[in-house]
């Protein structure tokens, strides 16, 4: 049972991360190679609040969300917007996000050194599970991660489908050129998507230490799962990211767990191999992801 719970918690967080990745991919056309580090940023925000203010990580979620949005704002305005203005190719934008990832790794690493000397507590490697408690018979993280993703999905849904801004946003995602001629400011939608992505990733990062150990370089490991989730679902669909997050999250946890009960715990490190294999199989058979399949067409033809 604990394994299934763990799989669901992990999938919730992965879905948040891959939704963020997909949103910025749709609006800016660039896969964000720093998405993993965005999450680790959130982990360190909540760790700092815990050490300095004694704030429980669950309460630091809103702060982490806002700071994450601010991070997305800085990255877009400071790095991507100037490059897009110069009509840089997609490859150049990708290299720029790779550079952002390295800068973030350096900054988070430097900050972790500072934090551990300043507080004399573990900051270069940490985990939040000792701070978790039981809530109606479940570990609290199980409930919290479900509530967090439900709330965020609900507000995203209301924003995209019930507000004028959301309609403009969706229009500029579907067809930026047409949206622009209709008077939508594509610049705002791009900026908003980066802020949203940063916020979602940072929130996921706040909860991630309840599930696994975090080091400054953890972003480089989790990025494989994020990309796999987004691609399995389909890089151009937000629903795809959601579905992909659950498929990858559940299979990473359950496949490695069932293998480990046969082959011993040594196989647990192969969790990322599961992601990679699913990513490769998707690229070979359905390169545009699950959401690109016309299910209705399939049933009709049979």
């Amino acid at each position: 049972m604990a394994v299934v719970e763990g799989a669901i918690i992990y999938s919730n967080l992965l879905a948040l991360l891959s939704i963020g990745l997909t949103i910025t991919y749709i609006t800016t056309g660039v896969p964000n190679f720093a998405q993993g580090s965005f999450a680790i940023f959130g982990s360190y925000v909540s760790l700092s609040l815990l050490y300095f203010l004694g704030l429980h990580p669950y309460y630091s979620l809103p702060i982490s969300l806002i700071l994450g949005g601010f991070l997305g704002f800085i990255i877009y305005i400071g790095v991507l917007k100037p490059l897009i203005a110069k009509e840089a190719k997609i490859v150049i934008l990708m290299i720029a996000t790779l550079a952002v990832d390295l800068i973030m790794l350096g900054s988070i690493g430097a900050y972790s050194d500072y934090l551990s000397t300043a507080t004399k507590k573990a900051a270069k490697k940490f985990i939040f599970t000792p701070y978790d408690f039981n809530l109606i018979g479940f570990p609290a993280i199980f409930i919290v991660s479900i509530v967090a993703i439900a709330l965020m999905l609900l507000s995203l849904f209301i924003l995209l489908y019930k507000t004028k801004f959301g309609i403009a946003l969706r229009a500029s995602m579907e067809n930026p050129a047409l949206a622009e001629t209709m008077g939508v400011n594509v610049e705002y939608t791009r900026l908003f998507s980066w802020m949203l992505s940063g916020a979602l990733a940072s929130a996921a990062g706040t909860l991630l230490p309840f599930r696994q150990e975090i080091v400054p370089a953890s972003g480089a490991i989790i990025i494989v799962s994020i990309f796999a989730s987004s691609i399995v679902g389909g890089l151009t669909s937000i629903y795809g990211a959601l579905i992909g997050g659950y498929i990858i999250g559940v299979s990473e946890s359950l496949i490695t767990f069932s293998l480990s009960s046969i082959l011993g715990s040594g196989v647990l490190v192969y969790a990322k191999v599961v992601s990679l294999i699913m990513l490769i199989l998707t690229l070979i058979f359905i390169p545009r992801g699950l959401t690109s399949i016309k299910w209705r067409g399939l049933t009709r033809s049979t």
Binding site: A96, L98, A99, D101, G106, G109, A110, D113
Partner: peptide
């Protein structure tokens, strides 16, 4: 207050963006 390797990462990351 931190190891030089982090500074190296930040510097080369910034260098890449400036070149771009």
């Amino acid at each position: 207050p931190f190891q030089a390797v982090w500074l190296e990462y930040i510097l080369f990351g910034v260098a890449m963006i400036l070149i771009l």
